[in-house]
Design a protein around this nucleic acid. Structure first.
Length: 684
DNA sequence: TTTAGGG
DNA sequence: CCCTAAA
């Protein structure tokens, strides 16, 4: 199948061009002209992956090296009209003269010609760009650690970029139960960086240790939250008027020491709005979330120093709640619509600290040893520190939980799994309350030996959801230059491969640079989060173990019916992601799309994507004529696909000439002329 | 292993 | 979604 669209964007993000493509620019640094959509990732960095521009000679490490001290001004200007044109972009950065510590790196301009060749910008272009930048102050932001950030707010889609909220992490989100919230919040204030959670390899190591026997008890010993936790922030937050004032957020924040009043101030600085909540814990938690922007690295380590863990008693809380905390961060995201600029700022400070934390000891965070050390330091301080439940553990627990939900006890042994997942799946009837040691039965020698399932080392490709983990590990981005360099040099040959796949790629490949025409659809990325929440809420538990055994064939649905276990309805956000993926990579590059856009979805194989696309295609041509809104009348149980998305699908299909002739016939019925602009006006 | 296509 | 052929 022939796909032809201008300057395939992915040429910018392909592995070979890491340096070119993974420019990590603190969010907020880029004024994005209409058609350019910077990537962003939860750590707060944007990846500039613009269809027609590229940055050459980037000193990526340098950019990271001085995160919180000062940044180069960074500006993007658009010179051409359409992205098809060979020369449409100019990118200029220059040192911020107002800040001595400003990053001295000067980024060169480059253009990407249609065929993907990078062409250094001419002096003329550079000058032109600089001129623009100098005279249009709106084009660039001056973001110091203490200066005002200009918010791109609603005219931009920064706020609505895809966040990897759904999929696996959704599951995690749902896994918590309300009884844990109070404690989580408590723990948050002194949470420590949970490395293990962030690094599967670390998991492998640590899981051989004892595992928290009783998780739920610990959770309950803290006081519950004031009931407003989930609802309060929701009500007021709208991103359009969202303008945080970072001038109040300086460097390190120790939320612990703040009074309620100060917390309020911080809150406002963080979220750009007032809060009436007086609960200190809540405030701290909220702010932390806002600041941490879903980075799993626990927020409130803001002033952690030298691996010092302040209160070890709370550490234990943290043990049991870090995953919840993690979820919470996400939930915070969903609710608060926390976006961009906050992330960035905090991403910076966080990054720095974490980098400090690790510099020297863990090259890129991939090797076991350093991490183990760090984690065990905690152990030393906290005597009998209960092992943190690792991500996998959580997954397992949720597995067993949902099994119980569906009224089945799974004791079967899958001695020889057919999929990667089976390799790491413990087979015991896992219950949070009683589980001395997780083992799995192995088929070694056919004798069904029980071994700590931890000991099995992942082979071959890393877990797909590994990237999800890596994503929330901003320290990768903030590593001192030398460390980053190591990565690039393939410092550690052993994990070099992994590193390429996860370390470098995972961090940037998170969001989608949205294309202009897709502006409308972006609406749904946000909305879809809601949809996910609401529609899935009821039976999330059932989903939690979706990637578990096939033993369970059906799951009860909210409506009382049953659904096949392995059928997970596509959420709107997933659909949007898919559409985006297709638009970027082209239909057919399913594995690419899978890897990039659905990195967090361990389900949704590339085949699934393909299938879904096929369906979408069909749907788009079949029901497009029915005009907007009407298609909701479908009796289908699946979610209705909003017309704009379908239109987009059709567009893409036509663009990539993958429209089957018979479908094509349908499309000529008066609406075919509609272009995206029409849609926009019609819908927004 | 990935993709395309049928079931 | 699953399965399989083909690349």
């Amino acid at each position: 199948m022939v796909q032809s669209y201008p300057a395939r964007q992915h040429s910018l993000v392909d592995d070979d061009d890491i340096l070119l493509s993974t420019l990590a620019v603190p969010r907020g640094y880029i004024q994005s002209p209409q058609q350019w959509r910077p990537f962003s990732d939860p750590s707060g960095f944007c990846r500039l992956t613009i269809s027609s521009i590229a940055l050459a000679d980037l000193h990526l490490p340098d950019l990271h090296a001085s995160p919180s001290q000062g940044h180069p001004n960074f500006a993007v200007e658009e010179g051409g009209k359409s992205k098809e044109e060979s020369s449409s972009a100019i990118v200029v950065t220059h040192s911020d003269s107002s800040n001595q510590i400003a990053d001295p790196v000067v980024y060169k301009l480059a253009r990407v010609v249609g065929d993907g060749i990078y062409v250094p910008a001419t002096d003329d272009e550079v000058m032109k760009a600089e001129d623009l930048i100098d005279h249009k102050s709106s084009l660039h932001f001056v973001l110091d650690n203490s200066q005002t950030a200009v918010c791109t707010s609603n005219d931009d889609t920064f706020d609505q970029e895809f966040m990897p909220i759904d999929c696996e992490f959704e599951d995690l989100l749902k896994f918590e139960d309300s009884s844990t919230q109070g404690e989580r919040l408590d723990a948050l204030a002194d949470t420590t960086v949970d490395l293990g959670k962030l690094n599967p390899q670390f998991e492998e190591v640590t899981q051989s240790e004892s595992i928290p026997i009783d998780q739920s008890q610990d959770r309950k010993q803290t006081d519950p939250l004031p009931g407003s936790v989930e609802s309060e922030p929701l009500s007021t937050t709208i991103c359009t008027s969202w303008k945080p004032d970072f001038s109040k957020l300086k460097g390190e924040i120790c939320l612990d020491n703040l009074s309620v009043k100060e917390l309020h101030a911080t809150f406002k600085a963080t979220f750009g709005r007032e809060t009436s909540v007086k609960d200190k814990q809540w405030l701290k938690r909220r702010i932390s979330m806002g600041l941490s922007n879903s980075c799993d690295v626990s927020v409130t380590t803001f002033n952690i120093e030298n691996n010092e863990v302040k209160k070890k008693d709370k550490l234990e809380d943290c043990d049991n709640t870090d995953e919840n905390h993690n979820k919470d961060s996400f939930r915070g995201l969903e609710e608060l619509n926390v976006t961009g600029e906050v992330k960035f700022l905090v991403g910076q400070s966080q990054t720095i600290q974490i980098a400090d934390h690790f510099s020297g000891s863990s090259k890129s965070g991939q090797s076991d040893a350093p991490k183990r050390d760090i984690a065990f330091e905690d152990d030393k301080q906290g005597n009998k520190r209960v092992r943190k439940p690792t991500r996998r553990y959580i997954e397992e627990v949720s597995d067993s939980d949902s099994r119980e939900f569906s009224g089945r006890q799974v004791s079967s042994v899958r001695s020889s799994g057919n999929g990667p997942r089976n390799q790491i799946r413990p087979v015991h009837n896992i219950q949070p309350m009683r589980r001395p040691l997780v083992t799995r039965q192995d088929s070694l020698g056919g004798s069904g030996v029980e071994i700590p399932y931890v000991s099995r080392i992942r082979r071959g490709r890393p877990r797909e959801n590994f990237m999800a983990l890596m994503k929330f590990q901003p320290y990768e981005m903030g590593m001192p230059a030398r460390l980053v360099k190591k990565v690039h040099d393939g410092y550690d040959p052993q994990s070099n491969n992994d590193r390429e796949n996860q370390g470098l790629k995972a961090t940037p490949d998170i969001g989608w640079p949205l294309q202009p025409e897709l502006g409308e659809i972006e609406q749904y990325s946000e909305q879809s989060v809601d949809i996910n929440n609401h529609s899935d809420e009821g039976h999330t538990d059932s989903y939690a173990d979706v990637d578990s055994d096939e033993n369970i064939l059906t799951v009860p649905t909210a409506k009382g019916g049953t659904r096949r276990k392995h059928h997970r309805p596509w959420t709107l956000s997933e659909v949007v992601k898919l559409v985006e993926g297709v638009s970027r990579y082209g239909a057919g590059r399913w594995s690419e799309i899978k890897r990039i856009a659905f990195a967090t979805c361990s389900h949704r194989t590339s085949v699934d994507l393909k299938d879904k696309w096929r369906n979408l295609l069909r749907a788009s041509f079949v029901q497009l004529p029915t005009e907007k809104g009407v298609q909701n009348s479908k009796k289908h149980s699946s979610i209705p696909i909003p017309a704009p998305i379908l239109l987009r699908v059709r567009e893409l299909a036509e663009m990539q000439s993958q429209v089957s002739p018979d479908l094509k016939a349908v499309k000529f019925d008066g609406h075919s002329g509609r272009n995206v602009n029409d849609i926009k006006s019609g819908f927004l």
